[in-house]
Design a protein around this nucleic acid. Structure first.
Lengths: 133, 133, 133, 133
DNA sequence: GTGGTCTAGACCACC
DNA sequence: GTGGTCTAGACCACA
């Protein structure tokens, strides 16, 4: 179910990011209960302590609220989630541009590669639509 | 001079990527000698052992060639460099798309954000052109 | 109404201390009935099981007496309350002195800080007397 | 050597406070290296992971700086240490006054108890000076 | 050797 | 059952 982890980055950070994405996508809405430590551990196939660290960090950033004996809940403060959304999107953008820049791409060339990638992707999607394996 | 490292990812991998980028940009042309272990260590502000690991790994991938007593040189095999270029570009693309997808962005929305980002960036560039601090 | 709890210390212990303080202050006199499990739970904003544990512990120390079907009552044995009073006051004192000592304060410096704190506090009190918000 | 821990409070917090006290007392000066994870673990008689958590928290509060492969060092930013000093002293004061207040003591009575405690303590010190066991 | 992460399993406080 | 802390022992990246 869950994709594998990049071995070159702390697992707890990767889980944090995925959970944040899920929250921002709405898989877990504000006020919703997140899976318990053990459940999440099974889900991501890691030790429950690793999940504990993830939830602790998320709580420190006010993205989540832990209630002893009850569970861990997504914050209801939308402004926090909005800030998180912008921060995640911007850092993705930023990273893409700086790395492509280091590779020697100008803005125009990045755009060209981008459009081409989209084109390739949509074609692949169409193909699989016509010929679903 | 050199930007800081992400502490959440092995430094030797980050240095590898930056060196690859420099090679692909042409900062180090095929056949050129790379900086010595000590010099590169000073340049990146890390221990020379870390640089040694980087060069070893690059040699394993045939991107550079170590000549004992002479130094480390960029390969003259253009096909290797071309493959490296594609691999780096594609993984950047891939990463960007999957992460934006996890955030809930459709292809169209990604494109919109992308164009907006370019727009913002070019405006900022124009501003700093008129009023260079 | 009731102040929040320190999350880094068992809640049942904190409630115990507050109840003891209230008893020693005379909010609950010897022989008085304490609030029911449910009421106290509402008052302190915790689960009634937690209150049950508190009352059990207080009963073990003979500070209160549980009468089945009737409620929980403050002991009428004044000597127990007196001993409790001394123990609580001394441990507060002890803790203050050892911690200030660890911070590097000599007895004289503690006294100076203490007097200054009193001074600040009484001034603040006077201010709010003249200009009650 | 090191005093025992209060079982009713997380050990890592208690170690944090003691380390902070030692830093503020000057046992570890700004820029000094703290004991390694294992050494500190032996010193405090806890697992090295517990120390790791302590150092992590201290690093988050900029009281300490961790350098991979080198050690953990007290910050050289005196303003951070000064703020820490005030915060620790004030919370000790605050706690003492509120708890004594809950016990029913007026400011004057607190002062009286305080002076008496000092008196008792200095007498005990004198006794042990005359008659060191 | 030093910090950082992860696991497996345990105990506790709270609901 | 749920979160929080602790242990013992392991592996890795860095100096």
């Amino acid at each position: 179910m869950e994709p594998e982890f990049d071995p070159n980055q702390p697992i707890y950070l990767q889980i944090m990011q995925r959970l944040c994405s899920k929250i921002l996508r709405g898989d877990y809405a504000p006020g919703d209960k997140l899976p318990s430590l053990v459940d999440a551990g099974l889900q991501f196939n890691v030790n429950h302590n690793t999940i504990a660290r993830v939830y602790m960090e998320l709580a420190r950033q006010c993205i989540v609220e832990a209630k002893r004996g009850e569970g861990t809940f997504v914050t209801e403060d939308r402004s926090v989630l909005e800030a998180l959304h912008h921060s995640m999107r911007d850092s993705l953008m930023e990273n893409f541009f700086t790395e492509m820049g280091r590779l020697g791409y100008s803005i125009e060339e990045m755009n060209a590669s981008f459009q081409e990638y989209i084109h390739r992707k949509s074609q692949a999607a169409n193909l699989s639509k016509e010929d679903p394996s």
